[in-house]
């Protein structure tokens, strides 16, 4: 797999609206991705994902034939076959229930964004790259709702307000450096906060990447 600008990241696109599909393909190609397949239905998407094993898939939640959560189900089924297959799910609305289902296997490589985010091309392309690299990219809307009511959640109660802020940024999929920039603190300070968060949530694993996903899951489970 190649994630740099120098070589092409292989993408499968699952989107049934022609306008949006073409737009996504054009945008991804313009940023150096290689779109290896574009499908407009759930069963076709699952087939392509399992056969082609792309570096990342960009998938609309609502796809034919049922026009319900066909895309999400295809994504989950594909990850059951190909563990950790990176998938970025797009939707007209976001639900924590879906975010939780996507992250449930604890492997990362998951993005879940509102379709609106496509309008900020830089951010969006960044999210696709992050997911392809095994990180997470949760929509700020999924995360925002959590900040309001988190007081009640037992493991999260022990977090300081600052740590909760850091966790929210982590859930969106930002790196320590990016979180530092957003909160106007040094990367080192962020690392201290994240270590505190991991400790308070009882995540002792040595793999930092995996711990980030588990922390986000704890967040979503509240």
């Amino acid at each position: 797999m190649c994630l740099g600008y120098g070589c092409a990241v292989k993408v499968v696109v699952g989107e049934d609206l022609t306008l949006l599909r073409d737009g996504l393909i054009r945008m991804l190609q313009a940023y150096g991705f290689e779109v290896v397949a574009a499908v407009d239905n759930g069963p076709g998407l699952l087939r392509e994902l399992v056969e082609r094993r792309p570096d990342v898939a960009v998938v609309d939640i609502r796809l034919p034939p049922t026009h319900t959560d066909e895309g999400l189900r295809a994504a989950l089924a594909a990850r059951a076959e190909v563990p950790g297959l990176p998938i970025l799910v797009l939707s007209q609305y976001v639900e924590r229930l879906y975010a939780r289902e996507l992250l449930a296997d604890g492997r990362g490589g998951i993005g879940y964004l509102l379709k609106d985010r496509v309008s900020d091309i830089g951010e969006f392309v960044d999210a696709v790259r992050r997911v392809a690299a095994g990180g997470t990219a949760l929509d700020p809307k999924v995360v925002a709702k959590l900040l309001d009511n988190r007081e009640r959640v037992l493991p999260l109660e022990r977090l300081t307000p600052r740590e909760r802020e850091v966790l929210a940024h982590m859930a969106e999929g930002r790196s320590n450096a990016a979180i530092g920039a957003a909160l106007f603190i040094t990367e080192k300070a962020v690392a201290k906060h994240t270590n505190n968060i991991f400790a308070k949530l009882g995540l002792q694993s040595s793999d930092d990447h995996n711990r980030r996903v588990l922390a986000v899951l704890a967040y979503l489970d509240g």
């Binding site: 639900e95 924590r96 939780r100 309001d148 009511n149």
Partner: peptide, 11 residues
């Protein structure tokens, strides 16, 4: 309903 309760301030 499961999705709804996830966003509420009361467990």
């Amino acid at each position: 309903v499961r999705a709804l309760v996830l966003d509420l301030a009361v467990p």
